[in-house]
């Protein structure tokens, strides 16, 4: 984390907006934690090690292309903050966000 500009970009990428106090604290936290981790891991020789993506060695888990019951629309929408005409409603989107 080089500067606050980078923090801002990261905040955008995470779809968050931070108060000045939070931003200051997170800037320091990310800086300290990443420095600590980078130092820690720099001592580890991983040249001959493959990444381990998952503990599970399971492969090829599939479903057949068979229909199952959907949720009833009332149930699907029951937790939505705002609905209009059977849809989830958000403020009008002009373009990409």
């Amino acid at each position: 984390m080089k500067n606050h500009e980078e923090l801002k970009q990261l905040t955008n990428m995470a779809a968050l907006s931070l108060s000045d106090i939070e931003a200051e604290k997170l800037f320091n936290d990310i800086r300290n934690i990443s420095q600590y981790l980078a130092e820690k891991l720099s001592g580890l020789d991983t040249r001959n090690t493959e990444p381990m993506v998952h503990v599970s060695d399971i492969t090829n888990v599939f479903r057949d292309d068979n229909e199952s019951d959907p949720l009833k629309r009332e149930e699907l929408l029951s937790n939505a903050p705002e609905t209009v005409n059977g849809c989830f409603a958000v403020p009008k989107i002009i373009e990409e966000i």
Partner: peptide, 15 residues
Amino acid sequence: DSFYKKALKARRLVT
């Protein structure tokens, strides 16, 4: 690479 991928490799070594 320096964080995510390195951590995946560390995961293997710990295992």
